[in-house]
Amino acid sequence: MAHHPDHDPGTGQYAYEDGNALAGPLSEILTVDPTSALGRCTGCGSRWPLAHLHVYAQAPGYVGRCPDCDQVILRLVRSPDKAWLDLRGTVALTFRLGP
């Protein structure tokens, strides 16, 4: 992972993980592999697979941010009996499916 300002040299830890951290919590909702789905940032227009998002998992929910401009792409909150998925930061999600 490239250097970024949220790397804490004291603990050697990063403030965020990559989008693969979303594989488990998102696959509960989406039946296809969610991290390979392609999105496009509504802020800066960059395109990426969800696996490339910067994911802040140490918050009350998961927050996925654009790797290029840090805009919030998705928020995922799980309660004991519900999940909320907000995808307002991506223009669309493209899933590769079988014919």
């Binding site: 140490q58 918050a59 009350p60 941010r65 840090d70």
Partner: peptide, 8 residues
């Protein structure tokens, strides 16, 4: 604990 939804 530090909880954060984005870069500091």
């Amino acid at each position: 604990p530090v909880l954060s939804a984005g870069p500091t």
